[in-house]
Nucleic acid binder design. Sequence first.
DNA 1: TTTTATATCTAACGATCGTTATAAAACTAA
DNA 2: TTAGTTTTATAACGATCGTTAGATATAAAA
Lengths: 208, 208
Amino acid sequence: MQDRCYPLTNRKKDEKLRDVTRRMIMDRTARLLVKKGYGATSLRDIAQACDMKAGSLYYHFDGKDALVEAIMAKGVTQVETAVRAALEDLAAGDPLDRIRTAMKVHLHTLHDRSDYGSAHIRCFAHVPPEIRRRLRDMRASYEESWTTLLQDARTAGAIAAEVDLHTLKFAVIGMMNWTLEWRLPSDATPDDIADQFFRIAFEGARHG
Amino acid sequence: MQDRCYPLTNRKKDEKLRDVTRRMIMDRTARLLVKKGYGATSLRDIAQACDMKAGSLYYHFDGKDALVEAIMAKGVTQVETAVRAALEDLAAGDPLDRIRTAMKVHLHTLHDRSDYGSAHIRCFAHVPPEIRRRLRDMRASYEESWTTLLQDARTAGAIAAEVDLHTLKFAVIGMMNWTLEWRLPSDATPDDIADQFFRIAFEGARHG
DNA sequence: TTTTATATCTAACGATCGTTATAAAACTAA
DNA sequence: TTAGTTTTATAACGATCGTTAGATATAAAA
C-alpha cells in the first residue's frame, strides 16, 4: 500500500477512511482540472497525483465524468453554503452591507478554500452536456440568492432605477469570477478586492 | 473535391484561395473550440467541420497547436485593433466617453464579429504552456490600452482617488468577458450591455 | 493536350484514452 | 493466527488521439 499520510493528517472525527480517500482524490483532481482543463486531464494523470493506478479510481468513483461532476458540484455548493450562512448572520442588516459581505465570502471561498470552485468555473463550458445541464441548475439556484440580494437593495431604495438588476448581477458575479484569471498581487486579500469591487460597482469609480 | 461554396462567397479581392481556405478552417475550428474546449476538439472533428480529412489540414497548418494558436492570437488582435481604431477617432474626446466607447467595441467584437475572441477566452487556461505564454504577452499589450485609458480619466479628475486602477481595469474587463457565460437576452445588444456596464462601474449602481 | 503546381485523400504509425475483469495486497475482527 | 472485508494493482480491451508518407485528384500554365 502507498502513502497514507494525506488521509491521516487532516482527518475529521467520525469520518470513514473511505470518505477521506474520496476527498483526497477530489482535492488533487480539482487542482489538475484547474491547471489542464477537463479534456486534457486523464485518469492516469489523476491516479499519479493520488499515488494510485488508474483502475483503482473506479473503486471510489464510477468513472471520470462522475468524479469531475462531483468536484464541480461541490464547487457550487461550497460557495452557496458559505454565502447563505454569512447572510443568515446578517439577516436584518443593511442591504448593501449584505451584498458586500456576500462578495467577500464568494471571493474568499473561490480563492482560499479549495480548487473546487475554480475547477467549476474553468471547466464548465467544456464538460459533457448532460453534466453541464445539471450544473447549470445548481448555478441558477445560487444566482437566485444574488437576485434576492439585489432586489432587497432596490426595495430599500439603494439602487438607481435605470440599473437593470439582471445585468448588475452578472456584472458583479463576472468581475468576481474573472479574478481567477489574475495573477493576484501577493499583498491583496480577497477581502481587499471585494471592498474595491463593491466600491466600484455600487458607489461608482467616479465619485469621490 | 468537396464543397467550395464557402471560400467563393465571402472572398475578399486579391485574396488567394489558399488564404480563404485557411480562414475557413480557422472560422470553423474557432466555433468548435468555443463549444468543446481545446482538449476535446480533435483534428478529426475539425476536418469534418471543414469537409476535409484530418491529414489534409497539415497542408494549411503545421498541426493542431499551430492552428489553435493562430486562432487565439487573432482573437486578441481583432479586439485590440478594433478598440484602438475606435479610440483614434476619439483622440481628443472626453476620457469617460473614450472608456465607454472602448467597452462597446470590446463587447461588440467579442459577440458579433467571430468566434476567435470567445475561443481565446474559453481555451486560454488550458492551452499548452508555451502557447499560453506567448498569448499572455499579447494580452498584456492589449491591457495596456486600458491602463492608459483609465490613467487619462484619473488625470482628468474623473476617477476617485481611493479606486485602484489595476483593480478597476480587471473589474471592467472581467465583467465584459464574463458575458460569454451568459445566455444573452435576445433583445439586448452588446451596445446596451456596454452602456449598463459603464453606468454601473463608473456612476455606480447606487446613484440616481 | 501535356506539364506543373496546388490541394486533398488514404492508410497507417505509435501513443494514449476511458474502462473492465481479475488477481493481489492490506487492513479488520475473531 | 485465521477468515473476511476493504482497497489497490495488473494487464489488457477497443477506441481515438496527433501525426506522417505517399498516392491521387484538381486547377493552372505551357
